[in-house]
Nucleic acid binder design. Structure first.
Lengths: 342, 342
DNA sequence: GTGAAAGCGCTAACAT
DNA sequence: ATGTTAGCGCTTTCAC
């Protein structure tokens, strides 16, 4: 068995309380007992057991994180931001993924709650109608959404303004002369952000008097391939959109690959705009145009917001606050002004 | 305060032992008491507290993961693989990053040990000379290295054969007629894999009677830029290498961007070979040639290996086993046969 | 089949 | 400045 403060106390010839004090308020122990105890700690290779501490304190100094998948760079960056900020504040991070499955959100949160995490940072399929968030609300566990941006409810979140960001991106395409602009997205039901971005697309189109096209909804949110028969319709320059607006960068890069395979050139035949601004997009040739959101900062801010809520939740339960971070439309060579294909 | 088995017992009119039994061996409880207790659990919204359970059991059903950074896709994929496998086995995952700083490895592991994780999966700077691993060995905490591939020591690991993989990649370049092949890597002292890959490069060169070139060691392991003055030397077709072998894909993609900025074409002027085989490399144009390693499987296998070691560590401490997974050299258009620049 | 009680490691009154 | 003790939530003998 690993040594506990008990063996340390025995070894040092003091009481367990003294050992505990040395660990928590070193100043409240006399110098020579301190050295005795430290010596015993050293000799036994003692390491405090947080399980005991946490049980006693009713707090774990641990936050839970639940996102769809780390295969999407954007969530990996966000988790990285969370972890860095957590480490600075002596919090640990417990991580779980859902693979975009709504039922797995609930299971993941249940497990985190059983571990008694002090709070949760998460991205859910639909922030408005989420039984998982209902549980968190009911249990009064502080949480912060990332990427989700609830409209109706007042659930705490850190995100960009998805609607405005999409609006800006599409407006940029329109300003370049594009009229047939189509959106490509993963399943809307698994991503409320994608839907909000679609609404931004719609508003931009309508505001400029352009008829919106039906969105292309593909099965996966990450690496994907357009159905070949669908892609075939892109052969006709009059039928295909002159610009594609994709709900994330992985889809944008995937469709660019598909278009190339079809013999079409980006941006000459089709302009492509992504969303997320993943770092690798900048290394592409042509450089991917995309709406940049600061994923690592989103994670960092979410963690700080969460910790604030946790530590203010002494007596009354304090919900975390919401933050909208600025986005920027990154212009790369994957987009160019519209030219008549005829 | 959240309800404990105590309130459940009170509510159901049974002892806490009965509640505990229902939770752990439901069959050992009579049907009608079971229903009474279940009703109480429902009514109170009881959720078992793992902290208490873990303290008592001396086990946490949690594994720790320590990698350099999630900004490198390869580690994100690996963590994703770990998490998926862990979830299947009802293990939770605590995650920490080191940003390639060796002192942070120790701190991260210390924190995990304080949380009494049952085992650790990690990538360290140098698996042979790692005080962090010494701690784990001394404390008899099961662990599995990922990506690290210790040569001398018998430390358990899951990786590809870095030396052989690099050898294969460079041999491929040589077979294409390249003679001036240079390696580009992050700081070797922060990545023993990079060094092993360099040795593979050396062997391939020497075995084919080619003079190896001094490796280019850049400061960062991820998104980077070659020093401009250095890159300038690439202007001279006779001075520059005809092929670059990069220690990872992020460096490969970064240098491709740099070369483009310089007006050089890949692969016409310089062929580029990466290492890792990140999914995004396949979406590039030209498609990135790279040594593919199965990152998600590495993570999954590491987790399974670790859990096996954990659960066999009942009495005697059982170290985990090592595994070498197969690599494949992915050939993309970033590499082409050597042509005389004159 | 069920209950009583000890104890995992720790902290925080409370006492001295 | 230090010791004594109760108890956080849970599992597990040991009785009955």
């Amino acid at each position: 068995m690993r040594p506990s403060i008990k063996q340390v106390a025995l070894e040092a010839g003091v009481s367990i309380a003294t050992v505990s004090r040395l660990l928590n308020q070193p100043d409240s122990v006399s110098v020579d007992t301190a050295s005795k105890v430290n010596q015993a700690i050293e000799a036994l290779g003692f390491r405090p057991n947080f399980t005991g501490r946490n049980l006693r304190a009713g707090r774990s100094h641990t936050v839970g994180v639940v996102v769809p998948t780390l295969s999407n760079t954007v969530f990996a960056q966000c988790l990285q931001g969370i972890e860095t900020a957590a480490r600075q504040r002596d919090y640990s991070v417990m991580f779980s993924a859902t693979e975009y499955r709504q039922q797995d959100e609930a299971a993941a949160v249940e497990l985190l709650l059983a571990h008694r995490v002090d709070g949760v940072i998460l991205t859910v399929a639909d922030a408005e109608a989420s039984t998982t968030l209902d549980v968190l609300d009911r249990e009064r566990i502080p949480y912060v959404l990332v990427y989700n941006q609830p409209q109706q409810s007042t659930r705490p979140s850190v995100s960009v303004d998805n609607h405005a960001a999409a609006y800006d991106a599409v407006t940029h395409l329109i300003k370049l002369g594009h009229r047939r602009i189509q959106m490509l997205a993963g399943q809307f039901h698994a991503s409320d952000r994608a839907l909000q971005r679609y609404h931004g697309y719609l508003q931009a189109m309508q505001q400029h008097g352009l008829p919106p096209l039906a969105p292309i909804e593909v099965a996966r949110h990450t690496y994907t391939s357009l159905a070949l028969e669908y892609l075939q319709t892109f052969r006709d320059p009059l039928q295909r959109p002159s610009a594609l607006f994709c709900s994330n960068d992985l889809l944008a890069l995937s469709v660019m690959r598909d278009l190339r395979a079809l013999g079409l050139r980006v941006p000459d035949d089709v302009s492509v705009m992504g969303f997320d601004g993943i770092p690798l997009g900048e290394l592409m040739d042509p450089m991917l145009s995309s709406v940049e959101q600061p994923s690592e900062q989103i994670g960092g801010l979410a963690l700080r917001t969460l910790v604030t809520a946790i530590e203010e939740t002494q007596d009354g339960y304090q919900a975390a606050s919401s933050h909208i971070l600025p986005h920027t439309v990154r212009i790369g060579a994957s987009v160019k002004p519209f030219t008549n294909p005829l």
